[in-house]
Protein backbone atom coordinates (compact mmCIF):
# COMPACT_ATOMS: atom_id res chain seq x y z
CA UNK A 1 0.00 0.00 0.00
CA UNK A 2 1.43 3.37 -0.96
CA UNK A 3 1.77 5.85 1.85
CA UNK A 4 3.67 6.33 5.05
CA UNK A 5 2.85 3.94 7.82
CA UNK A 6 3.96 4.68 11.35
CA UNK A 7 3.60 1.61 13.54
CA UNK A 8 3.78 1.72 17.35
CA UNK A 9 6.42 4.42 17.62
CA UNK A 10 7.62 5.42 21.08
CA UNK A 11 10.17 8.07 21.94
CA UNK A 12 11.29 9.16 25.39
CA UNK A 13 13.45 12.06 26.40
CA UNK A 14 14.57 11.06 29.88
CA UNK A 15 11.42 10.90 31.97
CA UNK A 16 9.32 12.57 29.30
CA UNK A 17 7.32 10.32 27.00
CA UNK A 18 7.26 12.44 23.84
CA UNK A 19 5.50 9.75 21.78
CA UNK A 20 3.56 6.88 23.33
CA UNK A 21 2.96 3.98 21.00
CA UNK A 22 1.88 6.15 18.05
CA UNK A 23 0.42 4.53 14.94
CA UNK A 24 -0.76 6.58 11.98
CA UNK A 25 -1.03 6.25 8.21
CA UNK A 26 -0.48 9.07 5.74
CA UNK A 27 -2.07 7.96 2.49
CA UNK A 28 -0.94 8.73 -1.03
CA UNK A 29 -1.87 12.09 -2.57
CA UNK A 30 -3.78 13.55 0.34
CA UNK A 31 -3.26 16.74 2.31
CA UNK A 32 -3.13 16.21 6.06
CA UNK A 33 -3.16 18.61 8.95
CA UNK A 34 -1.11 17.49 11.94
CA UNK A 35 -2.44 19.46 14.87
CA UNK A 36 -1.36 19.53 18.46
CA UNK A 37 -0.57 21.96 21.23
CA UNK A 38 2.99 23.02 21.99
CA UNK A 39 4.93 20.02 23.26
CA UNK A 40 2.30 17.49 22.10
CA UNK A 41 4.84 15.57 20.01
CA UNK A 42 4.23 16.85 16.47
CA UNK A 43 7.83 17.71 15.66
CA UNK A 44 9.12 14.56 17.37
CA UNK A 45 6.81 12.48 15.16
CA UNK A 46 7.91 14.31 12.01
CA UNK A 47 11.56 13.99 12.98
CA UNK A 48 11.15 10.23 13.47
CA UNK A 49 9.51 9.81 10.06
CA UNK A 50 12.15 11.85 8.28
CA UNK A 51 15.03 10.07 10.01
CA UNK A 52 16.31 13.09 11.91
CA UNK A 53 15.94 11.20 15.17
CA UNK A 54 15.45 7.52 15.92
CA UNK A 55 12.42 6.25 17.81
CA UNK A 56 13.06 4.05 20.84
CA UNK A 57 10.74 1.41 19.42
CA UNK A 58 8.33 0.87 16.56
CA UNK A 59 8.57 0.84 12.79
CA UNK A 60 8.05 3.25 9.91
CA UNK A 61 7.34 2.25 6.32
CA UNK A 62 7.37 4.34 3.15
CA UNK A 63 5.40 2.62 0.38
CA UNK A 64 5.88 -0.62 2.30
CA UNK A 65 9.64 -0.22 2.62
CA UNK A 66 11.25 0.24 6.06
CA UNK A 67 12.18 3.91 6.37
CA UNK A 68 14.62 3.97 9.26
CA UNK A 69 18.19 4.31 7.99
CA UNK A 70 17.04 3.65 4.45
CA UNK A 71 18.17 6.20 1.87
CA UNK A 72 15.87 5.10 -0.92
CA UNK A 73 12.79 5.45 1.34
CA UNK A 74 14.02 8.76 2.78
CA UNK A 75 14.61 10.07 -0.76
CA UNK A 76 10.84 10.11 -1.25
CA UNK A 77 10.40 12.47 1.68
CA UNK A 78 11.25 16.11 2.09
CA UNK A 79 10.66 17.98 5.29
CA UNK A 80 10.54 21.68 5.82
CA UNK A 81 11.59 21.78 9.46
CA UNK A 82 12.00 24.42 12.10
CA UNK A 83 15.74 23.97 12.11
CA UNK A 84 18.00 24.76 9.21
CA UNK A 85 20.37 22.11 8.00
CA UNK A 86 22.24 24.39 5.63
CA UNK A 87 25.53 26.00 6.65
CA UNK A 88 24.65 29.41 8.03
CA UNK A 89 26.93 31.37 5.76
CA UNK A 90 25.48 29.72 2.63
CA UNK A 91 23.66 31.93 0.17
CA UNK A 92 20.08 31.16 -0.85
CA UNK A 93 21.26 30.61 -4.43
CA UNK A 94 23.78 27.96 -3.34
CA UNK A 95 21.30 26.23 -1.05
CA UNK A 96 18.99 25.82 -4.06
CA UNK A 97 21.82 24.21 -6.08
CA UNK A 98 22.71 21.99 -3.16
CA UNK A 99 19.12 20.74 -2.72
CA UNK A 100 18.98 20.08 -6.45
CA UNK A 101 21.90 17.66 -6.07
CA UNK A 102 20.02 15.51 -3.61
CA UNK A 103 16.58 15.53 -5.20
CA UNK A 104 16.74 14.40 -8.83
CA UNK A 105 13.20 15.58 -9.56
CA UNK A 106 13.90 19.09 -8.24
CA UNK A 107 12.23 21.68 -10.50
CA UNK A 108 14.66 24.56 -10.80
CA UNK A 109 12.48 26.76 -13.04
CA UNK A 110 9.54 26.40 -10.70
CA UNK A 111 11.78 27.18 -7.72
CA UNK A 112 13.09 30.38 -9.31
CA UNK A 113 9.59 31.38 -10.34
CA UNK A 114 8.33 31.00 -6.76
CA UNK A 115 11.38 32.85 -5.38
CA UNK A 116 10.56 35.77 -7.64
CA UNK A 117 6.86 35.65 -6.79
CA UNK A 118 7.61 35.77 -3.04
CA UNK A 119 10.39 38.34 -3.47
CA UNK A 120 13.08 36.08 -2.01
CA UNK A 121 16.55 37.58 -2.52
CA UNK A 122 18.81 34.74 -3.69
CA UNK A 123 21.99 36.64 -2.92
CA UNK A 124 21.24 36.79 0.79
CA UNK A 125 22.93 34.51 3.23
CA UNK A 126 20.51 32.13 4.91
CA UNK A 127 21.47 33.42 8.35
CA UNK A 128 20.55 36.97 7.31
CA UNK A 129 17.01 36.11 6.25
CA UNK A 130 14.18 37.40 8.46
CA UNK A 131 11.95 34.84 10.20
CA UNK A 132 9.37 35.25 7.45
CA UNK A 133 11.82 34.91 4.58
CA UNK A 134 13.53 32.03 6.38
CA UNK A 135 10.17 30.22 6.22
CA UNK A 136 9.59 31.30 2.62
CA UNK A 137 13.03 30.01 1.60
CA UNK A 138 12.31 26.61 3.12
CA UNK A 139 8.79 26.23 1.79
CA UNK A 140 9.90 27.14 -1.73
CA UNK A 141 12.61 24.47 -1.58
CA UNK A 142 10.12 21.95 -0.22
CA UNK A 143 7.56 22.56 -2.96
CA UNK A 144 10.28 22.41 -5.63
CA UNK A 145 11.70 19.00 -4.67
CA UNK A 146 8.80 17.13 -6.28
CA UNK A 147 9.21 14.48 -3.62
CA UNK A 148 6.00 12.44 -3.21
CA UNK A 149 5.85 13.07 0.55
CA UNK A 150 6.22 16.63 1.79
CA UNK A 151 6.22 17.54 5.46
CA UNK A 152 5.71 21.13 6.55
CA UNK A 153 6.48 21.97 10.16
CA UNK A 154 5.06 25.45 10.87
CA UNK A 155 5.31 26.52 7.21
CA UNK A 156 3.84 29.99 7.73
CA UNK A 157 5.87 31.02 10.78
CA UNK A 158 6.54 34.76 10.47
CA UNK A 159 4.72 35.11 7.13
CA UNK A 160 2.44 38.09 6.64
CA UNK A 161 -1.17 37.51 5.56
CA UNK A 162 -0.39 38.07 1.86
CA UNK A 163 2.47 35.58 1.88
CA UNK A 164 0.40 33.02 3.78
CA UNK A 165 -2.28 33.37 1.15
CA UNK A 166 0.34 32.90 -1.59
CA UNK A 167 1.67 29.79 0.13
CA UNK A 168 -1.73 28.06 0.38
CA UNK A 169 -2.40 28.89 -3.28
CA UNK A 170 1.03 27.67 -4.41
CA UNK A 171 0.54 24.46 -2.45
CA UNK A 172 -2.89 23.81 -3.97
CA UNK A 173 -1.77 24.79 -7.47
CA UNK A 174 1.09 22.28 -7.27
CA UNK A 175 -1.24 19.69 -5.75
CA UNK A 176 -3.88 19.91 -8.49
CA UNK A 177 -1.23 19.74 -11.22
CA UNK A 178 0.65 16.78 -9.76
CA UNK A 179 -0.80 15.36 -6.55
CA UNK A 180 1.46 14.45 -3.64
CA UNK A 181 1.11 13.77 0.05
CA UNK A 182 1.44 16.82 2.26
CA UNK A 183 1.47 16.82 6.05
CA UNK A 184 1.12 20.32 7.47
CA UNK A 185 1.79 20.94 11.12
CA UNK A 186 0.52 24.36 12.13
CA UNK A 187 -1.05 26.39 14.89
CA UNK A 188 -3.02 28.53 12.41
CA UNK A 189 -5.85 26.03 12.31
CA UNK A 190 -8.65 28.04 10.76
CA UNK A 191 -6.46 29.11 7.85
CA UNK A 192 -5.60 25.58 6.95
CA UNK A 193 -8.93 23.90 7.74
CA UNK A 194 -10.24 24.22 4.18
CA UNK A 195 -6.95 23.22 2.58
CA UNK A 196 -6.49 19.93 4.42
CA UNK A 197 -8.64 16.90 3.70
CA UNK A 198 -7.71 14.88 6.77
CA UNK A 199 -6.82 15.87 10.28
CA UNK A 200 -4.57 14.08 12.76
CA UNK A 201 -4.70 15.46 16.29
CA UNK A 202 -1.95 14.59 18.72
CA UNK A 203 -2.22 15.18 22.44
CA UNK A 204 0.51 14.43 24.96
CA UNK A 205 2.27 11.99 22.66
CA UNK A 206 -0.89 10.14 21.58
CA UNK A 207 -3.04 10.39 18.48
CA UNK A 208 -6.55 11.28 19.64
CA UNK A 209 -8.18 11.92 16.25
CA UNK A 210 -7.43 10.76 12.72
CA UNK A 211 -10.25 11.33 10.25
CA UNK A 212 -11.53 13.59 7.50
CA UNK A 213 -12.06 17.20 8.50
CA UNK A 214 -15.63 17.06 7.29
CA UNK A 215 -16.41 13.99 9.38
CA UNK A 216 -14.87 15.53 12.49
CA UNK A 217 -16.72 18.82 11.98
CA UNK A 218 -20.01 17.02 11.45
CA UNK A 219 -19.78 15.59 14.96
CA UNK A 220 -19.15 18.77 16.93
CA UNK A 221 -21.96 20.95 18.27
CA UNK A 222 -22.46 23.91 20.52
CA UNK A 223 -25.63 24.09 22.57
CA UNK A 224 -26.65 27.38 24.16
CA UNK A 225 -29.45 28.21 26.54
CA UNK A 226 -30.29 28.69 30.18
CA UNK A 227 -27.88 26.91 32.50
CA UNK A 228 -30.55 24.66 34.01
CA UNK A 229 -31.91 23.59 30.61
CA UNK A 230 -28.42 22.90 29.26
CA UNK A 231 -27.38 20.94 32.34
CA UNK A 232 -30.27 18.53 32.13
CA UNK A 233 -30.05 18.19 28.34
CA UNK A 234 -26.33 17.32 28.26
CA UNK A 235 -26.47 14.77 31.06
CA UNK A 236 -26.25 11.80 28.70
CA UNK A 237 -24.03 13.48 26.06
CA UNK A 238 -20.28 13.60 25.48
CA UNK A 239 -19.39 17.08 26.63
CA UNK A 240 -15.95 18.52 25.83
CA UNK A 241 -16.44 21.67 27.84
CA UNK A 242 -18.81 24.41 28.91
CA UNK A 243 -18.72 28.20 29.03
CA UNK A 244 -20.98 30.15 31.36
CA UNK A 245 -22.02 33.75 31.32
CA UNK A 246 -24.33 34.40 34.24
CA UNK A 247 -27.36 32.17 33.76
CA UNK A 248 -26.45 31.45 30.14
CA UNK A 249 -24.50 28.38 29.30
CA UNK A 250 -22.84 27.04 26.18
CA UNK A 251 -21.86 23.38 26.02
CA UNK A 252 -19.45 21.91 23.46
CA UNK A 253 -20.72 18.48 22.56
CA UNK A 254 -19.49 15.58 20.43
CA UNK A 255 -22.03 13.33 18.77
CA UNK A 256 -25.14 13.66 16.68
CA UNK A 257 -28.19 15.52 17.89
CA UNK A 258 -31.61 15.53 16.37
CA UNK A 259 -32.57 19.22 16.18
CA UNK A 260 -36.19 18.22 16.72
CA UNK A 261 -35.29 16.90 20.18
CA UNK A 262 -34.09 20.32 21.34
CA UNK A 263 -36.17 21.96 24.09
CA UNK A 264 -37.60 25.37 23.20
CA UNK A 265 -35.22 28.23 23.85
CA UNK A 266 -32.10 26.16 23.26
CA UNK A 267 -29.92 26.93 20.27
CA UNK A 268 -27.68 24.58 18.37
CA UNK A 269 -24.62 25.60 16.38
CA UNK A 270 -21.64 24.02 14.70
CA UNK A 271 -18.04 24.23 15.84
CA UNK A 272 -15.24 25.20 13.52
CA UNK A 273 -12.03 23.18 13.48
CA UNK A 274 -10.18 25.54 15.79
CA UNK A 275 -12.91 25.50 18.43
CA UNK A 276 -13.12 21.72 18.25
CA UNK A 277 -9.36 21.47 18.53
CA UNK A 278 -9.28 23.73 21.59
CA UNK A 279 -11.93 21.68 23.37
CA UNK A 280 -10.44 18.32 22.35
CA UNK A 281 -6.97 19.25 23.56
CA UNK A 282 -7.84 21.22 26.70
CA UNK A 283 -6.40 19.93 29.95
Amino acid sequence: MRGIEVRNIAKNYGEVQALKNVSVFFGENKIYGLLGRNGAGKTTLLNCITGRIFPDSGQIFVDGEPAIENDSAQGKIFMMGEKNFYPEGMKVRDAIKWTEEFYPDFDRDYCLKLAKQFGLNQNKKIKNLSTGYGSIFKLILTLSTNAPYLFFDEPVLGLDANHRDMFYKALLQKYVEKPFTAVISTHLIEEVSGVIEKVVIIKKGEIIRNQSVEELLSKGYTLSGSASAIDSFIEDKTVLGVDSLGGLKTAYVIGTIDPASLPAGMEIGRMDLQKLFIHLTNE
Binding site: D165, L172, Y175, V176, G194, V195, E197, E214
Partner: peptide, 15 residues
Protein backbone atom coordinates in the same frame (compact mmCIF):
# COMPACT_ATOMS: atom_id res chain seq x y z
CA UNK B 1 -13.53 23.63 -12.81
CA UNK B 2 -12.71 22.07 -9.44
CA UNK B 3 -9.16 23.40 -9.91
CA UNK B 4 -10.39 26.96 -10.39
CA UNK B 5 -12.73 26.71 -7.41
CA UNK B 6 -10.04 25.13 -5.26
CA UNK B 7 -7.50 27.86 -6.02
CA UNK B 8 -9.97 30.72 -5.84
CA UNK B 9 -11.25 29.76 -2.39
CA UNK B 10 -8.10 28.01 -1.15
CA UNK B 11 -9.93 24.79 -0.47
CA UNK B 12 -8.95 21.18 -1.00
CA UNK B 13 -9.87 20.04 -4.54
CA UNK B 14 -11.68 17.03 -3.04
CA UNK B 15 -14.04 19.45 -1.30
Amino acid sequence: STTEISLRYKINPAT
